[in-house]
Amino acid sequence: MSFKLVLLDQLAACHHDKSWFIPLDEMLRDVTAAQAAWTNDEGQSIWRLVHHLIFWNERWLDRFIQGEVRMDHHINNDETFYVNPSRVSEEEWQKSIERVGSTFVQWIQAVQESDDAKLALTIPSYFNAPWWNVISNVCIHNAYHIGQIMMLKKKVVASA
């Protein structure tokens, strides 16, 4: 089996293929802006997690497409969760859903268009990790936060 098939399976599972867990597109389908903006005692919200996923998926996708990784040591990871409180609306929430979905579609397309040689290339500036390993870890990161979104969704729906 090729790297490509495994990565495409992982990306699909995170985005739209209901297999071991509910995929992100289904998880977000009936969430309102108010539900997405609701924060728990730790300050987490569905919307904040979606923004975090958008940030890191877009960042690594751009790196993969460009074939170049420049490490951004100035990034404050906490800032990747930011949601502007003055922009909380159904329209803005739908834009966030569309953007995260679009990013997954772009990832799938980028991996489909790649061959195993590109996926096996190592990234000297990132621990000499091969691309297939980095993309696989992006998927693990996505699955972790999709699980958090599921737990938050259960809490917000139960509190309604």
Rank of each mutant, 00 (worst) to 15 (best):
His141Gly: 06
Ile108Asn: 07
Lys155Ala: 12
Gln109His: 13
Phe104Ser: 07
Gln66Leu: 07
Ala143Val: 11
Leu119Met: 05
Ala117Pro: 08
His73Ala: 13
Ala117Val: 13
Ser102Ile: 00
Ser102Val: 01
Trp107Tyr: 03
Met27Gly: 01
Trp38Val: 02
Met1Asp: 15
Arg59Phe: 12
Asp116Ile: 15
Asp116Lys: 15
His52Met: 09
His51Glu: 11
Gln112Leu: 08
Ala34Trp: 01
Lys153Pro: 09
Asp9Val: 01
Ile65Ala: 06
Asp41Trp: 00
Trp132Ile: 12
Val134Asp: 09
Ile108Thr: 14
Ala33Pro: 04
Thr39Phe: 00
Ala158Arg: 07
Leu49Cys: 05
Lys4Cys: 03
His73Asn: 13
Glu42Cys: 00
Arg99Ile: 00
Ala12Trp: 06
Leu28Asp: 07
Asn84Cys: 13
Val157Thr: 15
Leu24Ile: 13
Phe21Asn: 03
Met150Ser: 14
Val50Leu: 09
Met151Arg: 10
Glu92Thr: 03
Ile108Leu: 01
Trp38Leu: 00
Phe64Ser: 02
Ala110Gln: 10
Trp93Phe: 11
Arg70Met: 11
Arg59His: 12
Val83Lys: 01
Val138Asp: 02
Ser136Gln: 14
Ala158Gln: 10
His52Arg: 01
Arg48Asp: 06
Arg70Gln: 14
Arg99Ser: 05
Lys18Asn: 10
Leu152His: 08
Gln148Val: 11
Ala36Tyr: 03
Trp56His: 02
Gln44Ile: 02
Met150Val: 10
Ser125Ile: 05
Thr39Glu: 09
Phe104Asp: 02
Met71Val: 14
Glu68Leu: 11
Ala160Val: 11
Asp25Cys: 10
Phe21Cys: 05
Leu119Ala: 04
His16Val: 12
Ile146Val: 14
Val31Gln: 08
Gln10Asp: 11
Asp30Trp: 00
Phe3Gln: 09
Phe3Trp: 07
Lys155Trp: 05
Gly147Thr: 14
Ala117Asp: 09
Pro124Cys: 09
Asn128Met: 13
Asp62Ile: 07
Gly43Ala: 00
Ile135Phe: 02
Ala143Lys: 03
His141Lys: 02
Glu91Tyr: 07
Asn142Ile: 01
Thr39Leu: 01
Gln10Thr: 03
Val105Gly: 10
Asn142Thr: 06
Pro130Val: 00
Met151Tyr: 07
Val50Thr: 11
Glu91Cys: 01
Leu49Met: 04
His52Asn: 05
Ser125Gly: 03
Lys155Val: 12
Val83His: 06
Ser2Gln: 13
Ala36Glu: 06
Phe21Met: 11
Ser96Leu: 08
Val111Phe: 06
Ile146Cys: 09
Ala12Ser: 14
Lys4Gly: 04
Arg59Leu: 13
Trp56Gly: 04
Asn133Val: 07
Ala36Arg: 03
Ser86Gly: 03
Asn137Ala: 04
Pro23Cys: 06
Ser125His: 08
Thr80Met: 08
His52Cys: 04
Gly101Tyr: 05
Ala37Tyr: 08
Val156Leu: 10
Leu49Lys: 05
Asn142Arg: 02
Gln66Val: 08
Cys139Tyr: 06
Trp56Met: 03
Ser2Met: 11
His73Lys: 15
Val83Met: 06
Val105Asn: 14
Asp78Thr: 14
